[in-house]
């Protein structure tokens, strides 16, 4: 059953990061579907009273699946609908090394520490390399798995 309630983001609910109430969550172990569902439930609950900044510590993440990344983006979607935001922080070699990061990299950032995450967007970096566009040369090219085998 859907657990979301309508709370469309409006200008009047938008705030600076510094003005937002924040909640810190820590993900340990696998970043997969069950984990992010729990993050989503906690975020939905926290966002019920108004815009909130959810900070997720991913330093202790040991493995990452596409379901996990998709789930995090859904949490971002959920929070932004309510005028809040989601920020990831902490050094996770698993998250850095997975190929998923190549896709995630230009959509969202994993900040080095909590403070950077709260400040969000102060020190930008260029995204990682993305998959090349279609060209006639690639039409008959050998296929390769592009995602999910991190």
């Amino acid at each position: 059953m859907s657990m979301l309630s309508p709370a469309p983001m409006t200008i009047s609910s938008a705030q600076n990061t510094a003005d937002l109430t924040s909640l810190e969550l820590t993900v340990t172990g696998a970043l997969d579907a069950p984990t992010v569902l729990a993050v989503r439930q906690a975020s939905a609950q926290a966002a019920a009273d108004g815009p909130i900044l959810i900070l997720v510590d991913v330093a202790a993440v040991t493995s990452v699946g596409a379901s996990g990344v998709v789930g995090l983006l859904e949490v971002l979607h959920l929070l932004r609908l309510r005028g809040g935001d989601l920020r990831l922080f902490g050094h996770s070699s698993e998250l850095q090394e997975t190929r998923l990061q190549a896709h995630l990299g230009h959509v969202a950032r994993v900040y080095a520490n909590r403070q950077d995450a709260v400040d969000g967007g102060m020190a930008r970096v260029r995204p990682r390399g993305l998959a090349p566009r279609l060209s006639w040369r690639t039409l008959f090219g050998r296929r390769h798995r592009s995602l999910g085998w991190g």
């Binding site: 938008a14 990061t17 959509v107 950032r109 969000g120 967007g121 930008r124 995204p127």
Partner: peptide, 30 residues
């Protein structure tokens, strides 16, 4: 920022904050 390749989540969040600030500057225009 998009041309420069910045992180999209940050760009769109900043845009939201900028819109918010602009709207608050003229309250009767909301």
């Amino acid at each position: 920022q998009v041309r420069r390749g910045d992180v999209l989540a940050e760009i769109t969040f900043e845009l939201r904050v900028a819109f918010h600030a602009a709207a608050l500057a003229v309250p009767d225009a909301m």
